[in-house]
Amino acid sequence: MDGVFYYFLLTVIIINLAPGPAMLYVLNQSVKFGIGKGLKAAAGVEAGVFFYVICVSFGLVVFFSHFPLVFQAIKIVGAVYLIWLAVTAWPKKSNKAMTTEEAKIDLDARHVFSKGLLINLTNPKIGLFFVSLLPQFIPAHASPAWLYLLAYGLVFNLGGIIVNSAVGMLGLKMKSLLNRAGWFDYVPPVLFVIIAAITIGKMFL
């Protein structure tokens, strides 16, 4: 394995550890209804991620096979989008966003899996995120391209499964930990900027 893959693994770990609506949903189901419901919620949200992994992997390969230059264009657009994500993800208030988000989450114990699935299926930003992120780690002449995209996407999906399953099992302990680690909110946006800068640097310098 080369350094790029280890860099990707680090990115996967950091991004999957960053609290978001899906993680908050899993956390609340676990705290409110127990570990079993938390794990079902985790399975649901990661099933939604898997859907986008498949769509991005087999959708982009069509472009790569017919228009090789599109790969470079996607990397440029993806780098710009990652910078935009960094700007929008930068913490704006000192108070914890978790309290606000938690108030918006439905804690009904029924259909936990399907609700977790819908959280990600109805969020097109996830698809855009994969389109932006995955090509940054794939060589320009990778063949077959779809296999690289699928493999990297599945690694990202696996990381999410591990993290969200842990959230589902730890419940209250994880909630307390995330509330104390306010500094971690700054890590993902900084990482997005670094990835974008490296991509642009390789292409133009």
Score class of each variant (00 low, 15 high):
Ala181Trp: 14
Ser143Ala: 13
Ser165Gly: 09
Leu172Val: 12
Met169Asn: 04
Leu154Arg: 05
Lys175Asp: 06
Tyr148Cys: 05
Ala181Ile: 13
Gly182Cys: 00
Leu147Pro: 03
Ala145Val: 07
Ser143Glu: 10
Trp183Ser: 12
Leu178Cys: 03
Leu172Arg: 14
Leu178Val: 15
Leu154Met: 13
Phe184Thr: 10
Val155Phe: 08
Trp183Val: 13
Lys175Phe: 01
Lys173Ser: 13
Leu170Val: 03
Pro144Gln: 09
Val163Met: 09
Asn164Lys: 12
Ile161Lys: 05
Leu172Lys: 15
Leu149Lys: 05
Leu170Pro: 02
Lys173Ala: 13
Trp183Gln: 08
Asn164Cys: 02
Trp146Cys: 07
Ser176Phe: 00
Ile162Gln: 02
Asn157Tyr: 05
Val163Asp: 02
Ser165His: 00
Pro144Gly: 08
Gly153Arg: 01
Val155Glu: 05
Tyr148Asn: 10
Gly159Thr: 04
Pro144Ala: 09
Val167Leu: 02
Asn157His: 13
Trp183Ala: 15
Gly160Lys: 04
Tyr148Arg: 03
Phe184His: 11
Val167Phe: 03
Leu147Val: 11
Ser143His: 13
Leu158Ser: 10
Leu150Arg: 10
Gly160Asp: 06
Gly182Lys: 09
Ser176Glu: 04
Phe184Gln: 12
Gly160Arg: 03
Ala166Leu: 14
Val167Gln: 01
Leu177Glu: 05
Leu158Ile: 13
Pro144Asp: 11
Val167Tyr: 05
Gly160Gln: 06
Leu147Gln: 14
Gly159Cys: 04
Arg180Asp: 03
Gly159Tyr: 05
Ile161Met: 14
Ser143Phe: 08
Phe156Gly: 07
Asn157Lys: 05
Leu158Glu: 02
Leu154Ile: 15
Met174Arg: 06
Leu177Met: 11
Val163Arg: 02
Lys173Asp: 07
Trp146Arg: 04
Pro144Cys: 07
Gly168Arg: 00
Trp146Tyr: 14
Gly168Trp: 00
Leu158His: 03
Trp146Met: 07
Gly159Asn: 06
Ser143Thr: 10
Phe184Trp: 09
Tyr148Asp: 09
Lys173Pro: 02
Ala181Arg: 05
Gly168His: 00
Met169Cys: 14
Leu170Tyr: 08
Val155Asp: 08
Leu177Asn: 04
Lys173Glu: 09
Ser143Asp: 09
Phe184Glu: 10
